[in-house]
Design a protein around this nucleic acid. Sequence first.
DNA 1: CTTTTTATCGAACATTTGTACTATAATTAA
DNA 2: TTAATTATAGTACAAATGTTCGATAAAAAG
Lengths: 195, 195
Amino acid sequence: MVSKKQQEILNFINKNIEIKGYSPTVREICKEVNLKSTSTVQYHLNKLINLGFLQKSNNISRSIQSLNMKSKYSIPILGEISAGQPLIAEENYIGELPYFGKERNNELIALKINGDSMIEAGLFDDDLVVIDKSIMPTDGDIGAFLINNTEATVKYIDTIEKKKYLIPANKNYNNLIVDENISSIGKVISLFRDM
Amino acid sequence: MVSKKQQEILNFINKNIEIKGYSPTVREICKEVNLKSTSTVQYHLNKLINLGFLQKSNNISRSIQSLNMKSKYSIPILGEISAGQPLIAEENYIGELPYFGKERNNELIALKINGDSMIEAGLFDDDLVVIDKSIMPTDGDIGAFLINNTEATVKYIDTIEKKKYLIPANKNYNNLIVDENISSIGKVISLFRDM
DNA sequence: CTTTTTATCGAACATTTGTACTATAATTAA
DNA sequence: TTAATTATAGTACAAATGTTCGATAAAAAG
């Protein structure tokens, strides 16, 4: 599929667009990936276009566009967590949530709210919550937690009589004591709802 | 400041980058804004660069970058509506909400929820709602409405015994009958909350 | 009514840039 | 081994493109 050289070219194009704001020329690619001939680059470019990684307009300078490059600050949206799968596994990936904020892409994921256990906190079924994995939720925060490494849930966390609990915002649900089966994913920092 | 021609050029550059993914050439700008000479465009380009609207690299094709260009699909956030001011007046503008969706920028605005009258619908104080001005809210929808041309409010709209009402989602508030003092701004299509 | 500033044009020039063609290695498949 | 595919180089060309210079109009300022 994508050869080493092609990956190198792809990376350079992405980097160039990101840093400079425009795509490189064939000759600039030449230099960067140590190819002597522009036509060799053309050759690889065509391959990459056919493979669907790139796009360009004919006879127009610096018109290469990278299709695989995700939006600069998009966040992976993860759905249900299947048993045993790590949270970031491809299997759980259901989309991308574009996000504008500080550049801390790697620490952010989005989860889809399932059910109404947090309805009184304004988190409705099918809402998307953005989770910052670099922030451990502390008392009073809403956080995302992993139960038995299989199920993700969003709840308040708080201390009651010196014990930590996951606390739903819905009278019909019970508090869940935090034990070794429960690990924290991160803090919920924002919410997005499509109506 | 920015002359009419310069604004035209700026708009074209922004549009071109948005649609095609790369900046136009001097000659492309020429054609679009009906200037015969490339050097006239250069002249305006330099002005725009000095004013801080644009940026470009020397001797590099299609390297113009727009600095003022808001995020691709950002939406103006409007705060309180002051008496008599039209809804889109500068005075009400409190920021920009980046938005990724279909390209229907002009029809979208964002309003900050004030108070808890819609709390049972999951719209909390300080939440931002995105409003599509091109969609008239119909029965069952949540919409944004303008009361006496002075105050904006977000409510359910519905028909009760053949009369239209604005209906809060909070038992402590009363329904408001829709009369000639109330006009519709648009339908609430999404919600964003920062925690 | 001058003078200055702003805006426009035209033409020419030097690169920059995309593309095409041919020839050869290097690698892989048959 | 032979044929086919993949990767690379070199060269050449035409078009695209940024830039500069001089001349003029148009508008604004004095």
